[in-house]
Write a protein that binds this DNA or RNA. Structure first.
Length: 483
DNA sequence: CCCAATGATTGACG
DNA sequence: CGTCAATCATTGGG
């Protein structure tokens, strides 16, 4: 102790270099910080030292010195100290101390013994810590917009109650922890329920469904197209959904197997459809129902016209969620076929499609863009080499967990050369388990049977593809009537 | 300053 | 262990 004091007073190139000295003093100050009587002379010596600025670059030194000053009611001096110290990388502790100092000042000014959380927040806003203490700036507590968008899309497109595997996938995609993903969905479900109990307490049949989207304009869905938002089907509605949740609701009730359309009240669902089923094309940049793993930022715009267009142009990421249980993907397909049957233009990707839920006599135009090279063994096999891409940003602390799901993950940077198109003209949607027969002209085919899931054939009839690795489908329904 | 939105935490429950 | 409800803390915007 005395040694340090003399060292500080008489430092003249003989002692250890300043950085080393700062480390030592920092350690000493830390050890003594609870003993004000002992630490005080040391702090004074540091602050009076010629090496003051060097020493204060040590986080421990700065912290204890500022703390001591603050305890001595020298808040201004403590703040000046924190402003002039240059701790490399900043320090959360120092930021906290900075805030505590200003809390104290505000408390004194207001004459109160404690601050409410909101008062603290205002104080932090009014007195932000110096940049040197937090070089990365203050980060928002809220998740980034893209992250929330992705979670929202999953909730509205796949499930509000994702399985553990799905949550883990989402966590990987969003750089959140699985716990954060879980919390998000829990909050989402809860708040959706609360919202509906307020907005439509009368409509019991539908109000109890937590999956229906809110009516308020969603800040995350600014497209203004209500079609976009209506594509929700809870996975548990379908036979594959094993994790039953929510109030039991028989699919065979008045609404049929389809979920009521929250945002399309014009379509009662069990009535013969009266609206023209004019096929609608996606406009450039228009939002469409999102697949499992694509955030809007990565979604390409679709231009429809004669012929087919690659639906993904660049750096599209395909992820392990495509290999998720069939139920997930089937639900998505079913949701789409249902929703899109009235609001065309749904974009889906997945392992396969099940059109059994389609309205009878519906002509379904399915445009498929393969993200990769079609092969006889699979729709589009993952590229052998994974091109580098900036899409997948490794978040801190996640790299270790990324290993095993990454097996099925690949990135696509090249649009497919040519995507085929075929037309399904579907007979009444009996749930016939009969295998489908594909008879089709060149680039279109007629289906006389419901298309079983996981089986779609290219028009050329060459091969059957059961894995849509990265395929995206644009479904356009027209001319059908509800049966 | 107020308020709504949002993420996290906690305890109860099956 | 997973879910829910209640509640807290934080935040952004009017």
């Amino acid at each position: 102790m005395q040694t340090f004091l003399t060292l500080l007073r008489e430092h003249g190139g003989t002692g250890p270099p300043p950085a080393e000295l700062a480390t030592l003093i920092g350690r000493l100050l830390r050890d003594l910080q609870d003993d004000l009587a002992q630490v005080q002379p040391l702090v004074t010596a540091v602050l009076d030292s010629q090496l003051r600025l060097h020493l204060l670059d040590n986080a421990d030194v700065a912290l204890v010195c500022a703390h001591v000053l603050e305890q001595q009611e020298q808040q201004q001096a403590a703040c000046r100290l924190l402003e002039e110290c240059r701790v490399p990388g900043g320090s959360q502790e120092l930021v906290q101390l900075w805030n505590d100092i200003h809390y104290r000042l505000v408390m004194r000014k207001l004459g109160v013994a404690a601050l409410t959380p909101v008062q603290k927040f205002r104080c932090r806003k009014r007195h932000p810590p110096p940049p040197s203490l937090c070089p990365e700036g203050l980060k928002s507590r809220n998740f980034p917009r893209e992250v929330r968008q992705k979670l929202h899309d999953f909730a509205s497109g796949v499930s509000t109650n994702p399985s553990k595997a799905e949550r883990e996938n989402l966590a990987l995609e969003t750089s959140l922890t699985t716990e954060q993903v879980y919390n998000w969905f829990a909050n989402y479900r809860r708040r959706q329920r609360a919202l509906h109990q307020h907005t439509e307490p009368a409509q019991k049949a539908t109000a109890e469904d937590p999956s229906v989207r809110e009516r308020h304009p969603d800040p995350l869905q600014p497209s203004g197209d209500p079609h976009v938002d209506s594509g929700f089907v809870d996975r548990s509605q379908w036979p594959e959904g094993h994790e039953e949740n929510g109030p039991p609701q028989s699919p065979e009730t008045t609404q049929g197997p389809w979920e009521p359309l929250a945002l399309a009240p014009d379509f009662p669902g069990d009535e013969t459809i009266s609206k023209p089923l004019a096929p609608r094309s996606l406009q450039g940049g228009e939002m469409y129902q999102e697949g499992v793993s694509h955030s809007p930022a990565t979604l390409p715009s679709i231009c429809r016209g004669p012929g087919l267009y690659p639906l993904a142009a660049s750096n599209d990421m395909l992820d392990p969620s495509l290999a998720a249980p069939e139920s997930c993907l089937m639900s998505l397909a079913l949701a789409s076929s249902k929703e899109v049957s009235f609001q065309t233009g749904q974009l889906v990707h997945g392992h396969g499609l099940d059109f059994m839920m389609c309205p009878a006599d519906t002509t379904v135009t399915v445009s498929i863009a393969a993200l990769g090279n079609p092969s006889p063994t699979g729709f589009a096999d993952p590229p052998s080499s994974i091109p580098q891409s900036t899409h997948l940003e490794e978040g801190p602390g996640t790299s270790s967990r990324r290993t095993e799901p990454q097996a099925g993950r690949f990135l696509v940077t090249q649009p497919p050369p040519q995507a085929p198109e075929f037309i399904l003209t579907q007979s009444p949607p009996e749930l016939s388990p009969a295998p489908s027969t594909f008879i089709g002209p060149m680039s279109a085919m007629e289906l006389s049977q419901p298309l079983p899931s996981s089986q779609v054939q290219w028009p050329d009839g060459q091969a059957s593809y059961d894995a849509f690795w990265g395929a995206r489908m644009l479904l356009e329904f027209s001319g059908g009537s509800l049966g």
